[in-house]
């Protein structure tokens, strides 16, 4: 299958002290509808990789292409547009906007691309329903539990029907039950709607959800395991 996301010789060096290569040289391809789990110990470069794949950070070397568009060719506004329309993010600490209610958080990306109010209302209700959070639509993040916040965050990541959802330790701040619920949610969206996921987690138990597990160590990909062999 033709990849929609491709990372080529990706490297990221942070300037602290002598300079640290958090990511040395990573090549990765993600196909449409695929569920990729990036696993590895803390500090191996998983999050750095995800940030680069999501255009949240610029690589020191190498490049990322999304549907043939190289991130290196885009300015900051171009990257922002890509993030806005083609990518969805789920973060470890949920990162909902505290000033907004659950439904306003979900609708924000839609408002950014200028959808009509009616369409936003319809789609927001549908997404909150899909993640089981309709009954909390008017609540602010402070009034939600961790698991509930992450569900809202998942709904927000799906708001603009992104090509890919990038999730950085989405269960890292949840108890095991809520963590499994979120992963189930991901699997459901992946299987029912063919939504592409790239999920970073250090929990080896989540490997069963993925079509492919990319294992990393010291800033490089060590192995790539495909489901069923």
């Amino acid at each position: 299958m033709k990849p929609i996301l491709r990372a080529t010789a990706l490297g990221r060096r942070f300037p602290a002290g002598e300079g640290v290569w958090a990511l040395k040289k990573v090549d990765l391809e993600v196909a449409q509808g695929e569920f990729v789990l990036v696993a590895g110990p803390s500090g191996c470069g998983k999050t750095t990789l995800l940030n680069l794949l999501g255009g949240l950070d610029r690589p020191t070397r190498g490049d990322v292409e999304l549907k043939g568009t190289a991130f290196s060719k885009l300015d900051e506004s171009g990257l922002a547009r890509i993030r806005r329309r083609e990518l969805g993010f789920v973060f470890q600490f949920f990162n909902l906007l505290a000033d907004l209610t659950a439904e306003e958080n979900v609708s924000l990306p839609m408002r950014m691309i200028g959808l009509s109010k009616a369409e936003i209302a319809l789609r927001t209700a549908s997404l909150l329903e899909a993640v089981g959070m309709s009954y909390r639509a008017k609540h602010t993040p402070f009034e939600l539990s961790g698991g509930e916040q992450q569900r809202v965050a998942v709904a927000r990541s799906l708001a603009n029907n992104p090509l890919i959802i990038l999730a950085d330790e989405p269960t890292g701040n949840l108890d095991s039950k809520n963590g499994l619920d979120i992963m189930e949610l991901f699997r459901r969206f992946n299987q029912e709607k063919k939504q592409t996921f790239v999920v970073v987690s250090h929990d080896p138990g989540f490997a069963e959800y993925a079509d492919r597990v990319v294992r990393m160590h010291d800033g490089v990909v060590t192995t790539i395991e495909r489901k069923g062999g």
Binding site: E76, S77, A80, R81, R84, N95, L97, L108, P109, I113
Partner: peptide
């Protein structure tokens, strides 16, 4: 910082 970063991550341009 984090909240503003999230707004950017969601696709808000610098301006």
């Amino acid at each position: 910082k984090v909240q503003l970063g999230v707004v950017k991550a969601l696709g808000a341009e610098d301006d």
